[in-house]
Design a protein around this nucleic acid. Structure first.
Lengths: 346, 346
DNA sequence: TTGTACGCGTTATCAG
DNA sequence: CTGATAACGCGTACAA
């Protein structure tokens, strides 16, 4: 029989995947033995093991995931759930770093990552996927206070949140930075460099991180006895940042400093300034947040609060894997440090 | 018994997922009947169906995916495979559009999307995932000629490629644009607007789209009898584009036009020009490719070749779903039109 | 219309 | 060290 032709070809022209049974037959052993070899059990005589391995190789056998998962009650997959619009998610490099970090941790494990960019009210389909045993756990990032469905996934799976959440549970974990302090540090920088009319472009206030950064800004202002300038929601998007900056410039009184709660928004806001002939940092000082590469692309290199996004992703995955492997001493909250990165904008 | 407390709680504090059996018991019917109701079979008497639905509701029953997939031989999931570095993938908004398009098509289906950002030589883990029945089909984007592993996934799954591939098969499909023609149109625009020393910043020549765009550039030049300027690889990245532009500027003779094979590279290249006091389009004209929002963020609004990325994603998913549902009249190649979008850079 | 019984491909517990 | 055999949870002929 010529290679590539198989009498058992399906209508679709694809040969059915070989099963344990088939490998066993070819190697002249039982299914159990094949299973042992495949799973690296030591109690198999070398010659037999070798024969099995050859059969596996020849047939291109790959264990059926559904069958394995049915009996083991594990899928060896975890989901990254982002209740965001696709373009939102991809538009902010912060998420790329998070994913890269998760990926890095997963590489050394047997888990595979399923990225689920869900809308805020995911269809039953998504929920059934998450609740139907397709994944062993989930990492949730960028969640909003209005995301009710998270309650349900938290009830059925171990979940690690990126950013504090109002949703708690026995198997709920959080990796975050101190957003209040980070924002305060940013704002103090503005104050120390001489700013006295300080505005802020905030993220959507349906997100805890936005709320915290706003609080930090206010706190630093209060500490220094500096009056709070305008607060505008920039929606954590490029355009939102640009619009917010226009709004601030149209304020009744000019500002001389702006704390912008994400570099992406800042990279939308800075060009607005430059276009109007306003110099950064001479006329208006800017401090961003995140330290993604967007900080370097706005026309002025941004002074910003560095968030260890990649490490955050790594830890989220690490914690989840720990929990899934039954570790009991996993901390429920991990707060990573931020750091002020001084560049040209403030 | 108080709600929320269940004697069957696992050590992890999580109640085991209810099974068909359990629902059946509660509704006082057989498993088969519950299955019928869950799967929307019509042959169930209304009162019984109602009782079952209530039991499902009360127990929060969700079908076990592994079991269902084991018997049906389908996972209702498809994979989007991108053999790219995570930051590469997220850095280019082109992919965001593709994903958005796929997502849009999937929304109206029962399929769920698994995003797999694989390295070029994915671990056995990834291959086992793809080959182990975890997904019913795959969409592959951004593949390089060196990606040997694709051969294997093409052998075991229906695959739709985004961009022409050297890998063919009975169940292999392609959605693409005419890159040669698109690039030629771009280059003709440069020629028509008076450029005579025309360079190009290409993508990695391990990708078919890069090769095609380069060919189109050359073709347009030949047609017009214009000598070809320097060709520099910009690697389809922002920094690559910037470096490539520097290299071009250091060429022995100055250029007056550059066709840049992606907007992302162009948005890295344009600032290099502006920084050196070179005006766009007065001194050097630029035409990009893709028409992602990067075209609007480079300092000059880019004239570019629009690629219907979102529609491409949509069609890739549509074709795959068609194949999976047994359709036999699915075209193996779908070429979507490009369009020159004239803005300020040329 | 409803229930019974079998099989999907694995892993794991037993005997041998 | 190896081979039967019993689950795992579900869909579905087939029988009632």
């Amino acid at each position: 029989m010529p290679a590539g032709e198989d009498p058992l070809m399906t209508a679709a022209g694809r040969t059915p995947a070989p099963t344990l049974e088939l490998v066993a037959a070819r190697a002249g052993v039982s299914r159990a033995t094949v299973s042992r070899v495949v799973n690296g059990s030591t109690s198999v005589s070398p010659p037999i093991a070798e024969a099995v391995r050859r059969a596996v190789q020849e047939l291109g056998y790959v264990p059926n995931r559904a069958a394995r998962s049915l009996v083991s009650q594990q899928s060896q997959a975890i989901a990254l759930v982002a209740p965001e619009d696709v373009n939102r998610f991809f538009g902010d490099l912060f998420f790329a770093e998070i994913v890269a970090g998760i990926d890095a941790r997963l590489e050394a494990s047997d888990y595979v990552l399923n990225l689920m960019i869900a809308n805020h009210d995911p269809s039953g389909k998504t929920m059934r996927y998450l609740g139907g045993g397709a994944v062993d756990g989930a990492i949730v990032v960028s969640h909003h206070t209005s995301d009710r469905f998270l309650r349900r996934i938290t009830d059925s799976l171990p979940v690690v949140y990126g950013g504090r959440s109002s949703i708690a549970g026995a198997d709920t974990y959080v990796v975050d930075v101190d957003n209040v302090e980070g924002a305060a540090v940013a704002t103090r920088r503005l104050i120390e460099t001489g700013c006295r009319r300080i505005a802020t472009i905030a993220g959507p206030l349906t997100m805890q991180s936005s709320i915290d950064r706003l609080a930090g800004w206010r706190q630093a202002l209060d500490e220094a006895g500096v009056a709070a300038g305008p607060v505008v929601d920039g929606d954590f998007t490029l355009h939102g940042g640009a619009n917010a900056m226009r709004e601030i410039l149209d304020w009744r009184e000019p500002v001389d400093g702006v704390f912008i709660a994400s570099d992406l928004m800042a990279s939308g806001a800075v060009p607005v300034l430059l276009d109007r002939g306003i110099r950064v940092p001479e006329d208006v000082r800017i401090v961003g947040f995140d330290d993604t590469s967007a900080a370097l692309r706005s026309g002025v290199e941004l002074t910003t609060v560095r968030q260890p996004s990649r490490a955050m992703g790594w830890h989220m995955a690490d914690i989840l894997i720990g929990v899934l492997s039954g570790a009991t001493d996993v901390p429920h909250e991990l707060i990573l440090p931020t750091e002020l990165v001084v560049r040209d904008s403030a």
